[in-house]
Simulated assay, not measured.
Amino acid sequence: MKKGGGRASIHDVASRAGVSAATVSKFLHGVQTIKPANVARIKVAINELDYRLDPLAADLRRSRRNIIGFIVPDLESEFFGALASRLEILAEEQGYSLSIASSHESEERELKLVERMNDWRVAGTILAPVRSERGLGAERMKEVGMDGVFVDRVQSDARYDTIGVDNARASAAVCRAFCDLGHRHVLLLGLGEVSRNVRLRINGFRDEAARICPDMRVDAIMGDGGVEDLRAKLGKCLDSGRPTAVYSLFQKGTHIALSEFRRRGIRCPEDISLIGFDDADWMQVTYPSVSAVAQPVEKLADSAFELLMERLNADKPVARMHLEDCRLVLRESISAVPDGRDVGKEKAT
């Protein structure tokens, strides 16, 4: 630190070493023609001042930006946390730094974060939108001409690459699993239909039920007022006209379902079966272990980063839509109706 506090500059180093700022710059860029005595003094000055190169300023001088933005709806989510972790590794391997921010499921905050990334002059932004590719953050990225890729909760866009999973196909697989085991009354559990992913999961399940199991009753509870609203609605449903199976459309909903089962002494899977969308470590170690739709997080991150790099290096990139398949992993939380046979073994379909 320079005298009086604050970050030491290249001029502070030059003054301490008794050389010009140009000489210090040459040293920092590996020029070998500097006198050995000057090199020694520069090294001492750097150590004494704890000088660190300002990467943003350096990149601006080279007309290169090395920061990539990543905006997600919820960093408490295991899915988005894993996605961020993988993207950080990929970015650093290519000489970039990843700036991660959470919109906290707010489109207004998402908009502000995009503007912040633009102020920071990021090379590009990977956006997991609150709503869809037509949300506030996505529209702002288009307005400012920011390079980027949309991931999750998206389908297709005329300007940006979109990366997601085949939600409808995954939910159709869940429907077939319930149907094969004799379930004819299934409850879908979600936080609201504003998300494209939620709509696709609901429609995928219902369309498959109409196709292969027309006598299946499919109800849906949407917690429009948040998690506690969803918990209250689920409780009322379980206390009257109980379904034989629950399909939770998001991970927190799966946890709520299990807790409400136990609160009422409802056995899973003997009395009711459960499958949740989005797998997590806790689902594999709880009892019963929970059946889940597992998203290919690493593939999603790899595809998003690869497409962003192509976009940054292409003059006129063509927008592409990329969908990855999920896996349905069946564990102890699902069994047949009405005898309650335990599936017992974990398998993937």
Rank of each mutant, 00 (worst) to 15 (best):
R109Q: 12
I89P: 02
I34L: 07
L75A: 03
V72K: 03
A84H: 05
D119S: 15
L113S: 04
H104C: 09
P36V: 11
L111Q: 03
E115L: 12
T33P: 00
L49G: 01
A82P: 02
V39K: 15
S97W: 08
E48Q: 06
A40R: 14
L90S: 06
F70L: 15
L83F: 06
S63W: 03
I42W: 05
A91T: 06
S97A: 11
V72D: 05
M117W: 05
N66V: 02
N66I: 00
E110T: 11
V44N: 09
S63L: 03
F80P: 14
F80G: 04
P73W: 00
V114D: 01
V31L: 01
F80L: 08
P55D: 12
R64C: 02
L53G: 07
A57H: 05
D54L: 00
E108P: 04
I42Q: 08
A82S: 11
L111M: 07
R65F: 06
V72Q: 08
W120S: 15
R62P: 01
A91C: 12
I67P: 00
V31H: 09
E93C: 01
E88C: 01
R62H: 03
L56K: 03
L53S: 13
R116G: 14
S103K: 14
L56V: 14
P55K: 11
E88Q: 02
A84F: 04
I42H: 05
E88V: 03
V44P: 02
G124H: 04
Y51M: 09
E107R: 11
E76P: 00
R62D: 00
G81L: 10
R109N: 14
R86F: 07
E105C: 10
G30I: 02
A82K: 09
R62S: 04
I34D: 01
R41E: 00
A45C: 10
S97H: 12
G95W: 01
K43D: 08
G69F: 11
S102R: 05
A84T: 10
N38V: 05
S85E: 11
V122N: 05
V72T: 13
R121V: 07
F79P: 04
A37S: 14
E107V: 13
E78Y: 10
N47A: 15
R52C: 11
V122M: 11
A40T: 13
R121F: 12
P36L: 09
V44A: 08
E115Y: 10
S85C: 05
E110L: 10
N118V: 15
A40P: 08
R86M: 03
V122F: 08
R86N: 03
V122A: 09
I89R: 13
E48I: 05
L53N: 08
L83D: 13
G81Y: 15
V72P: 15
K112D: 13
R52I: 09
R86W: 08
A57F: 08
S85V: 06
Y96T: 07
P55S: 14
E92A: 11
R41L: 08
D74L: 15
W120P: 12
K35W: 01
T33F: 02
S103M: 12
E48S: 02
H104I: 12
K35T: 06
R62G: 02
K112W: 08
G95I: 00
N118A: 14
S97C: 06
D59W: 01
S63P: 00
I100L: 15
Y96E: 02
L60M: 15
A82R: 13
D74F: 08
R121E: 09
V122Y: 06
S63F: 04
P36T: 13
K35F: 03
Y51Q: 06
